[in-house]
Structures are given as structure tokens and as C-alpha cells.
Amino acid sequence: MNEPQPPEETLAKQLALVIDLNVCVGCHACVTSCKEWNTSGAAGPLSDLNAFAENPSGTFFNRVQTFEADSYPDTQTIHFPKSCLHCEDPPCVPVCPTGASYKRASDGIVLVDYDKCIGCKYCSWACPYGAREFDEERKVMTKCTLCVDRIYDELLPPQDRQPACVKACPTGARLFGDVKDPESEVSKAIRERGGYSLMPEWDTQPANQYLPRKITTEVKG
């Protein structure tokens, strides 16, 4: 293991996702696999309201959005997966009046204890990313758990001990690992490919990072 960082508050281990925007094709496989795993697992059920009616609405831990950048003829379409960033300084945690929201010291995952949540929604106000979704049926706040009930499950084969979204991604756009370990796949990707944080202006120090798109020039053949 590596030497701890100088600030005392910094955790020795911080699990996180690194999203490669070069290869995300916006297929939403991570969205559906996340929902499938988590609605059936320890974090579920993630309820759907009016699922077959006019205004369906459901609880999801992960969304894939689409943005367009630049102008014709150089327009780029960017598919952008968004889930809890497991901030190193999560503003959602200290505001929780009950302690239901917490950040695990052992691996840096930000979790909600559903049995302690009173459903006041204050934590969702205190997240600039809109990463938390209130479950209207269970009346508690929910969020990405990094599939905490999967990644440590020794009954699963080692290659399956990853978040459901990572396993589902057909293009390998989602990397998972310890960003505090400089030799991990995620740390190398961040270092070598210019990984960046969302909304750095609020100093939340998101653990999840994004790899910027590289414009590949036309190969003349």
C-alpha cells in the first residue's frame, strides 16, 4: 500500500469510477444494469411510479445524458454518464441531521443508511450534482453505492466483484478502482489521460473523474 497523503482527513483508500468520454456511446446499459442490480439488492427496491401510465417516474442511481459541443461542421456529441461522485469532501454528509448519510472511512464510499433516513431531502439540496434521488415509495434518500453489496462479495467470481454499471458497459467506458493507489488502473488513467473533476469551483473533490474526449483527426488513406 501507499503512503498516506499529508492532510489528516484524507483517506488511505478511495474507490471511484473513471468515465471515459471517448468511448461512451450513450447506450444506457449502465443505467439499466445499475437499476436491475440495485433494485433487487441491498439498496433496493428502487421504486417506479406510474411505470405504465402517462407520467412514469423512477428512482435511478445512474443516468446517461447527452450534450452537444462546438458548432457545425465540427459538432461533437458527448454522452455523459452521471452518478454520485463519492466526493472526498462530500457536502451532503455533514448537513444530514440524523447521520444516515455517511462516508465510509475504509473505502471512501458515500452511503445512506435507509433505516436512519427521515426523508428530509436536505442532503439532496446540499449536493451540487443532483446525484441523490429521493425514493417516493420508500420515502428515503437513495444514491449510488458503488455496488457495495457486490464488490466485496466473495461468493462472486473475482472478475464480477465490480459495480454493475462497469460490468455492463460494452465499450469499457467505465473504470473502477482505488484512486489513492497510484498504480491502479484508474489512477493511471487519470494521470495519463488528463482526468478531471466536475464543478471544481465548489471544492467538493469528487473521487469520480472523467477522461476528456480527444479529437481524432481524419486519417487520409
Binding site: 450534450f67 458527448i78 452521471k82 478531471y196 466536475l198 464543478m199 471544481p200 469551483e201 476528456p212
Partner: peptide
């Protein structure tokens, strides 16, 4: 800053649902 896309023109095309 929300997406990290460095372009003067960034517009959302879908919120995903």
C-alpha cells in the same frame, strides 16, 4: 464546469429520460 467539456458552445440534448 458541470460537464468539463471545454468548448464555448455546450448544449444539452438529452437529460437521459
Amino acid at each position: 464546469s458541470a460537464t468539463g467539456i471545454r468548448s464555448p458552445r455546450v448544449v444539452q440534448k438529452s437529460m437521459g429520460f
